[in-house]
Simulated scan of single mutants.
Amino acid sequence: MKRHRAVALYSGGLDSTLAILAVLRQGIEVKAVTFMNHFGCDVSDRSSCSKNPFAAAEKFGFEVKMSHLSWKFLDIVKSPKFGHGKNMNPCVDCRILMLREAKEFMEMSDAEFIVTGEVLGQRPMSQRRDSLNIIDRESGLRGSVLRPLSAKLLKPTVPEEQGIIDRELLYDFGGRSRKPQMALAEEFGLTEYPAPAGGCLLTEPNYAYRLRELLDHNPNPSYLDLQLLRIGRHFRISPGCKVIVGRDHSENDALLKLSDGKSPLMRVLGHGSPLTLLVGRTDEQAIRTAAALCARYSDARKLGDVDVRVISGVSEGLHICVIPAVDFNIEQFKIEKKVRDRSLQRT
Rank of each mutant, 00 (worst) to 15 (best):
A183W: 13
I320E: 07
C321E: 15
L149V: 12
D75F: 07
E160R: 13
D307Q: 13
M266L: 14
A197D: 13
S298C: 03
V33Y: 12
P90M: 04
S79Y: 10
L21T: 06
M125E: 13
M1F: 11
K51H: 12
H249K: 02
L170T: 10
P90Q: 04
T289Y: 07
E112I: 09
L154E: 04
N87S: 12
L256K: 03
V30L: 04
F328P: 04
Q127N: 05
T116A: 04
G175F: 12
A183G: 11
T17N: 03
I20N: 02
L278E: 13
F333E: 03
L149I: 15
P180K: 12
G163Q: 04
C94E: 03
N220G: 13
S79N: 12
I20G: 02
G246C: 01
M88Y: 11
L24S: 05
S273P: 03
S126H: 15
S131H: 10
S79W: 11
D253T: 03
P221Y: 05
F328R: 06
K65N: 13
A291E: 05
R346G: 07
E138L: 14
F113E: 04
C91W: 04
H84C: 15
H4V: 01
N329W: 11
V64Y: 10
F105G: 08
G189D: 07
Y223G: 09
S44F: 08
R176A: 08
L229T: 01
N252P: 05
F328D: 06
N133I: 10
G27R: 06
M266I: 06
L278Y: 14
S11W: 02
I311T: 01
G143A: 14
D166N: 10
E331W: 14
L154W: 02
G240E: 07
F235P: 01
G246D: 00
L201M: 15
A111P: 13
N89Y: 15
R210F: 06
R296L: 04
F54Y: 11
K103W: 06
R281F: 09
P90I: 04
R137L: 12
S150N: 12
R309V: 06
S44D: 14
K302T: 01
E336S: 01
S150M: 15
K103L: 05
L18P: 02
N252W: 00
S126P: 07
N220H: 12
Y297S: 01
D283E: 03
V158Y: 14
R342S: 08
I231F: 00
A254Q: 06
C49A: 14
D15V: 07
S343Q: 01
D305S: 10
G12R: 03
S343D: 00
R147K: 14
K179I: 15
N218W: 07
L9F: 06
Q127M: 05
S259W: 00
D260M: 08
G270Y: 12
T282V: 05
R247H: 00
R342M: 06
G13H: 05
K152T: 08
L141P: 13
A151E: 08
A300K: 13
E251I: 01
C200T: 12
E29A: 14
R95L: 00
G189V: 14
D253E: 10
G13E: 07
V308M: 06
